[in-house]
Design a protein around this nucleic acid. Structure first.
Length: 340
DNA sequence: AAGCCGGGGTC
DNA sequence: GACCCAGGCTT
């Protein structure tokens, strides 16, 4: 076994993080829980995932239960976690897995399931099924780039990083090794700091030997975010507000929302309200997405009650918290209700 | 290869 | 405010 792997596995035995989706030493974890946690953890921090993981496993304890759930309920339960295509793929994947009679154990077959890319397929194969797989996430990229002082900038350096990761991945306990690398990256060899004196592989690290491990990994420059403006429309009668369901693809796809004026990353909203009437400004919500910043004006319909509307639903205000509004629209609603 | 897709924590 | 995070899908 590679020396890095041996040292990391020893370290992991004494320093593994305790996380809700992990099981005690040696026990085989439930593939359903591994899959669910890995999908939730895509580009999402462990702290953000924990309450969602608890809620999902309580509501849907098995993949069969999740496969039988209405997609709309799963989307609402996912609200606030972000990257909503994950939730739609989660349901699709659950149905396929049930149809197959359970999760496949081979990495290549896992890779074919919706929502599972290179990382997640490898992680499930290694962690849930004890197979040797090369698991590469942002933590592993950083740790490997420092360990071997890789100077090529990301994302171009991915092939080289993979080759090094493959070489040090052990045949046994590949799942523990992957989690050890991630724990190391999350607690010791982090993006902003490198606590080399605490690191189990400090003596083998070329980045540390170079004197400045923090400069690694080198990353390509990123483009500036556009700033966009848009408007959300609050149309309420006494005890209910008009909500729409957004198209399945694109921004906040498939999620319930307030009607808006079609803002996007490419253009500001047109400002035209969906129905006639007088409108009163209720405030502005600022929200930052991955690729643009949005300043969303919120206006309240001040006209008389019966309004010709279609393509949405009156949602009871007392159950607004259950509507599954993404954070942007939850903030907009909060702005309106706070000002009443 | 590059663009699109959330949201919260952290400094 | 900038950067980061247990990435995947589409073009």
């Amino acid at each position: 076994m590679d020396r890095v792997a041996a040292l990391l596995l020893d370290w992991y035995d004494g320093h593994a993080r305790s996380l809700p989706w992990r099981v005690r030493d040696g026990a085989r974890p439930d593939p359903y829980r591994v899959w669910l946690s890995e999908v939730m953890l895509q580009q999402t921090t462990t702290a953000a995932v924990a309450p969602y993981f608890a809620k999902f496993t309580e509501t849907w304890p098995t993949v069969e239960a999740l496969a039988a759930a209405p997609e709309e309920e799963v989307m609402a339960a996912w609200a606030g976690l972000g990257y909503y295509s994950r939730a739609r793929n989660l349901v699709k994947c659950a149905k396929q897995v049930v149809e197959m009679g359970g999760f496949p154990e081979a990495e290549a077959e896992l890779r074919e399931l919706p929502g599972l890319g290179d990382y997640t397929a490898a992680a499930i194969a290694a962690i849930a099924f004890g197979q040797r797989a090369v698991v590469i996430d942002a933590n592993v990229e950083r740790v490997v780039a420092r360990l071997f002082a890789i100077e090529d900038p990301l994302p171009g350096a991915r092939r080289l990083i993979r080759a090094h990761a493959d070489r040090i991945t052990p045949d046994e306990r590949a799942g523990d090794f992957a989690q050890a690398m991630m724990d190391l990256g999350a607690t010791i060899c982090t993006a902003r700091s490198a606590s080399c004196l605490l690191c189990p592989v400090q003596g083998l690290c070329e980045g540390r030997a170079s004197g400045d491990p923090l400069r690694l990994p080198v990353k390509a420059e990123k483009k500036a975010k556009p700033r966009r403006t848009g408007t959300a429309f609050w149309i309420a009668r006494e005890d209910a507000v008009w909500l729409v369901t957004r198209p399945g693809k694109g921004m906040l796809g498939g999620m319930r929302a307030l009607p808006d004026d079609d803002w996007s990353s490419k253009a500001d909203g047109h400002g035209e309200p969906p129905v006639k009437g007088a409108w009163k400004a209720a405030g502005v919500v600022r929200h930052s997405f991955t690729h643009f910043d949005l300043e969303l004006g919120v206006v309240v319909h001040a006209g008389d009650d019966p309004v010709a509307l279609e393509g949405g639903e009156w949602w009871p205000l007392e159950r607004l918290a259950d509507a599954g509004l993404p954070t942007l629209f939850a903030k907009a609603a909060e702005r309106v209700l706070a000002g009443r």
